[in-house]
């Protein structure tokens, strides 16, 4: 119990530092890919600190409550993940977090945040099946939905679930809001949606959402790292490689539409998972 609390505390403190740093690195590397110098690595921290000092504007309490819900629930899923919890529950808690974010966008009668929320819902529709199938794959491979049981595996998950990993990369693109799927919040400016869900958040409330994105980034990279648990260093490298791939994808793609996203994930992503799971299932049935 005490150990679990320590882990949670560590997660709450360390994850945003890590996430912010990764975001900073992302911004620098992206700038370099575009032939620019880019901001200081610590830029995301400056941004959030500045936002904390700005005037608070909001439409109503609901809007703030849901943003807070987004933060807290993402932290909860990350904590569950670090405690080695049930993958399905982690995915469902993440869904609640995303739902909370969506409701925050809906809480204001603003067209841009409203449409952002609708788009975020479509994004959820796109990635949710892949994440649950990922959990199912883990179950088929290890006989357990628990993250901690992965550490008893001798063989890395990547060896048996390479296609699922690719599908996870698609999810990652959606979740960390990179082109071609930067649809709901306009991580990069200059979009038809202004800033999507975050349009009506400002000052400290926006900072809250930024920090949540950091937690989320760490969690998602954790999911990628899960594919290589022994040694964990390899998993971390794998996650960083995945992150780098995302940056490259971001820089070589135009933003696409939600119709395309749904079509792509529901055919491409899900079929990748299905083939992979099918192979595992057949092998297991054959082996037994």
């Amino acid at each position: 119990m005490v150990k679990a609390l320590m882990v949670v505390l560590l997660v709450v403190i360390m994850a945003p530092l890590l996430g912010g740093l990764l975001t900073g690195i992302d911004r620098v590397l992206t700038a370099r890919m575009q032939g620019r110098v880019g901001p200081p690595v610590l830029q995301p921290f400056y941004d959030v600190l500045k936002l904390l000092g700005k005037e608070a504007l909001a439409a109503n309490r609901r809007q703030v409550a849901w943003a807070l819900g987004y933060l807290v629930l993402i932290i909860a899923s990350l904590a569950l993940f670090c405690l080695g919890g049930d993958l399905l529950i982690i995915v469902f808690t993440m869904a609640f977090a995303a739902g909370s974010f969506v409701l925050g966008g809906f809480s204001v009668r603003s067209p841009y945040s409203h449409i952002g929320s609708q788009r975020e819902l479509l994004q959820m529709l796109a990635y949710e099946p892949v994440l649950i199938l990922l959990a199912l794959g883990v179950y088929l491979q290890t006989g357990s939905f628990m993250v901690k049981d992965l550490f008893h595996q001798s063989q890395p998950l990547l060896a048996s679930m390479p296609l699922v990993f690719i599908a996870l990369l698609i999810v990652l693109t959606i979740k960390i809001r990179k082109s071609p799927f930067d649809l709901a919040t306009s991580h990069h400016g200059h979009q038809e949606l202004v800033k999507g869900i975050t349009t009506e958040y400002s000052g400290p409330y926006l900072a809250l959402i930024e920090v949540t994105h950091w937690y989320e980034l760490v969690l998602l990279l954790g999911l990628a790292a899960m594919f290589w648990t022994h040694p964990l260093g390899a998993g971390i490298l794998l996650a960083l490689a995945a992150f780098f791939i995302e940056m490259v994808i971001d820089n070589i793609c135009a933003r696409l539409t939600w119709n395309w996203m749904i079509k792509f994930t529901w055919t491409g992503g899900i079929i990748l998972c299905l083939i992979n799971l099918g192979v595992i299932w057949v092998l297991r049935a054959g082996g037994v």
Binding site: G35, S179, D182, H188, H190, I252, C253, A254
Partner: peptide, 16 residues
Amino acid sequence: FADAFGFENLFMQYWA
């Protein structure tokens, strides 16, 4: 135009 469909890198390249 590249910026309008969210291709930031291409925008940068043309403007450079």
